[in-house]
Design a binder for these strands. Structure first.
Lengths: 212, 212
DNA sequence: CTATCGATGTAATCGATGCTCACATCCTCC
DNA sequence: GGAGGATGTGAGCATCGATTACATCGATAG
C-alpha cells in the first residue's frame, strides 16, 4: 500500500504562501498561522483555553507539527505575547500622536488608550502582562516621555518625576486590571464607563502634580 | 486473603483529629488538610504548580480522595482563595487599627500593608485576585472607610469621593501587581523598596486630594 | 450489643493534553 | 537529478483531572 492512501482524511485546503498551489503536506507558513490562531483562541477563551492539539486541528495539521516551529507551548505563547505587545504599543503611540501636546492631554490620552485596549481585548491584555511572557521594563511608555518633557518644560509641579511616573503607571495599570478582572463594584464595565473612570483617575492624578 | 493485607504500602502516619488514634483509612480532617497543603504548594510554585494528585500523595491519600471534599480542582482553589482573602483582610484591618487616625496616615498605612502582603506572599496575592476565584467587590476596604470618614470630617479636598477612592484603589492595586509580576524597571523589588514606593505613591495621591 | 447507613477513602480506568521519536515528504541548491 | 535540510506525520508515553464501583469506618437506632 502506498504511503499516502487515496482518501486519508478530508481536510480543508490549506493556504499556500511560498508557491502557487499543489496543496498538500507542507503548510506554507505554519509558524505565523499558529500565532494567529493562538491569538484568536485566546481572544475567545482566554489563555487557559489554548491547546496545541486544537490549534493543529484547526489548521489541518498533525499535533506534532507545531513543535517544528516552537520548542514548547510556552514559546508559542511568548511569540503571541510579543505580537500583542507590539499592537499595544502602537495603539498607545498613536493615541499620544493624535492628542494635543500639553502634558495633561498627553497623559490622559495615553491612559484612555491603555484602558480602552484592556477593555476591548481583555484576554490579550492578560497575556501580555502575564509574568515571564514579555518584558515590559524596557517599554518606552509614551506616558513617561510626556511627563518627563512636561517637567523639563516646567509645566508640572516640582515633585520627583519618578514618583509621578510611578504613581501614574500604577493607577492606569491598576485600573486596567481591575476592569479586566471584573473586580470593580457594579459588575462588568462598559467602554463608556471605562473612559469616564480613566478620566476621573487622570484628573485626580493631575490635581497632584499640576501646579494650581 | 483479607481485604487489608499486612503491609500494603508504607505510609506516614496520618494526623488524627476526631478520635485518639487507631490510625488508618480515614484521615480525620482531609478537607482542611487539603486547603493547607494547597496553600503551601501554591506558595512554593504558584497556582500552576498545584496538582491534586501530588497533594493527595503528600497527605498519604489516594488520588480520588480529594473529590469527596471538593467537586473539582477549582472548588478547592476557591476555598484556598477564601482562606487567603480572610488573612489579607485581617492584615489590612490590623494595619489601619495601629496607625494614627488622620486620613493620610490611615491611607498610607493600609496601602503599605497591602503592598507588603503582596511582596511577602506573591503567589497568594495572585490567587486571591485571580478572576472568578473570589469576589472583591464587597470588600469593606479600610482605605475606602478611611477616605470616606476623612471627607465627612472635611479633611480632604472637595472632589468627588468616588474619584478619589477609585484612584487610590487603582494605584495601590496597580503597584502591588507590578511588583508581584516583576514588571517594574530595576528587577525584583526588596521589601524596603516596596515600602518606599508605596510611600511615594501615597504622597503623590495625597497631594491630589489633601487641601493645600 | 449489633445491624444499618451515611460519610469517607480506594482501585481502576477514561479522556485530554504536552511532548518525543522515528520516519515520510517536499523544497532547494549544488 | 541527487543530497540534505526543513517541515509534517503517526504512534506513543507520561501526567493530570475526573468518574465509577467498591471497601471501610463511625455513629446511631433498635
Amino acid at each position: 500500500m502506498p504511503a499516502r492512501p487515496a482518501a486519508p482524511k478530508a481536510r480543508p485546503p490549506r493556504p499556500r504562501v511560498r508557491k502557487k498551489a499543489a496543496a498538500t503536506y507542507h503548510h506554507g507558513d505554519l509558524r505565523q498561522a499558529l500565532v494567529d490562531a493562538a491569538l484568536a483562541a485566546i481572544a475567545e477563551g482566554g489563555l487557559e483555553a489554548l491547546n496545541l492539539r486544537d490549534l493543529a486541528r484547526r489548521l489541518g495539521v498533525s499535533p506534532a507539527a507545531p513543535y517544528r516551529h516552537f520548542a514548547d507551548k510556552e514559546a508559542l505563547v511568548r511569540a503571541v505575547a510579543a505580537d500583542i505587545a507590539q499592537r499595544y504599543a502602537a495603539v498607545l503611540a498613536q493615541a499620544a500622536a493624535e492628542a494635543p501636546p500639553d502634558p495633561l492631554s498627553q497623559f490622559r490620552a495615553t491612559g484612555v488608550a491603555a484602558v480602552r485596549f484592556a477593555v476591548r481585548h481583555p484576554a490579550h491584555f492578560r497575556v501580555v502582562y502575564t509574568p515571564g511572557l514579555h518584558d515590559h521594563r524596557g517599554d518606552d511608555d509614551p506616558t513617561r516621555a510626556a511627563l518627563t518633557a512636561a517637567q523639563a518644560a516646567g509645566v508640572i509641579a516640582p515633585i520627583p518625576v519618578d514618583a509621578i511616573m510611578l504613581t501614574a503607571q500604577c493607577a492606569i495599570y491598576g485600573l486596567s486590571r481591575l476592569i479586566v478582572d471584573d473586580q470593580l463594584p457594579g459588575g462588568a464595565v462598559t467602554p463608556a464607563q471605562a473612559d469616564a473612570m480613566t478620566r476621573a483617575v487622570t484628573d485626580v492624578l493631575g490635581l497632584g502634580f499640576l501646579p494650581r
